[in-house]
Amino acid sequence: MANIEIPDDLLQLQRAANAAHREAVQQDYSPEGWRPWLDAADKVQRAVTEHAAEAGVSRYELEMAVKKAAREADEAEG
């Protein structure tokens, strides 16, 4: 995987999606309860696609780098 620079806005969007996912899975499934996570995940996907096209990088590699960086940041905060 190439060394991809991750914009802070993408990192923050992914971290917000991660937090929404953690909250969603702690409750019984309902469309209303999971909507914040689904909306956040959609926002991340659109932003990653847009940034990859603008930067001329692999969308897949950018997405994986963003997810990894967000996961590491979340773990560092405990």
Results as ranks from 00 to 15, higher is better:
Ala70Leu: 07
Ala2Gly: 11
Ser30Trp: 02
Val25Thr: 11
Asn18Arg: 06
Gly78Glu: 06
Ile6Ser: 07
Asp42Gln: 13
Trp34Val: 00
Gly78Cys: 10
Glu77Thr: 08
Pro7His: 03
Ala65His: 00
Ser58Trp: 11
Glu32Gln: 09
Asp42Lys: 11
Val66Tyr: 02
Gln45Ser: 10
Pro31Glu: 05
Gly78Ala: 11
Ala73Phe: 02
Asp42Thr: 14
Ala52Pro: 05
Arg15Met: 13
Tyr60Pro: 00
Gln27Thr: 05
Pro36Gln: 03
Gln45Ala: 07
Pro7Asn: 07
Glu75Tyr: 12
Val25Asp: 00
Leu11Asp: 04
Glu75Asp: 15
Ser58Leu: 12
Ala73Trp: 00
Glu63Cys: 01
His21Gln: 15
Ala76Lys: 13
Ala17Ile: 10
Asp39Gly: 01
Tyr29Pro: 00
Gly78Gln: 06
Trp34His: 01
Ala70Thr: 04
Ser58His: 07
Gln26Ser: 05
Ala41Gly: 04
Ala76Asp: 11
Asn18Ala: 14
Ala47Ile: 01
Ile6Met: 10
Ile6Glu: 07
Ser58Pro: 05
Asp42Glu: 14
Glu5Asp: 15
Val25Gly: 07
Asp8Asn: 10
Ala41Tyr: 04
Ala53Ser: 08
Gln12Asp: 11
Arg59Lys: 02
Asn18Ser: 15
Gln26Asn: 11
Glu61Asn: 08
Gln26Cys: 05
Val48Phe: 03
His21Asp: 12
Trp37Ala: 07
Leu62Phe: 05
Leu62Lys: 01
Asp8Thr: 13
Ala16Leu: 10
Thr49Ser: 12
Ala16Gln: 13
Leu62Thr: 03
Gln26Val: 00
Glu23Thr: 11
Ala76Met: 11
Ala16Trp: 04
Pro31Leu: 01
Glu75Pro: 09
Gln12Val: 13
Arg22Glu: 13
Ala55Asn: 09
His51Asp: 09
Ile6Val: 15
Glu5Cys: 11
Ser30Thr: 14
Lys68Asp: 14
Glu32Gly: 06
Ala52Gly: 00
His21Cys: 14
Ala20Leu: 05
Val66Met: 04
Arg35His: 10
Ala24Lys: 02
Arg59His: 03
Ile6Asp: 09
Glu50Tyr: 07
Ala76Cys: 08
Asp9Arg: 11
Ala52Tyr: 00
Gln45Arg: 13
Val57Tyr: 00
Asp74Gly: 09
Glu72Asp: 15
Ala70Met: 06
Ala70Ile: 04
Gly33Met: 07
Ala24Gly: 07
His51Glu: 11
Arg15Asp: 08
Ala73Gln: 08
Pro7Gly: 06
Ala70Asp: 04
Asp39Asn: 09
Val44Trp: 00
Trp37Thr: 08
Glu63Arg: 08
Pro36Asn: 05
Pro36Cys: 02
Asp8Gln: 12
Asp9Leu: 03
Val48Tyr: 02
Ile6Cys: 07
Asp8His: 09
Arg15Cys: 09
Ala20Thr: 08
Glu75Gln: 14
Lys67Gly: 10
Pro36Trp: 02
Ala52Gln: 03
Asp39Val: 10
Asp74Ile: 15
Asp74His: 14
Met64Glu: 11
Lys68Val: 14
Ala24Ser: 10
Gly78Leu: 06
Arg46Asn: 08
Val25Gln: 04
Asp9Asn: 14
Ala19Leu: 12
Gln27Ser: 12
Leu10Pro: 02
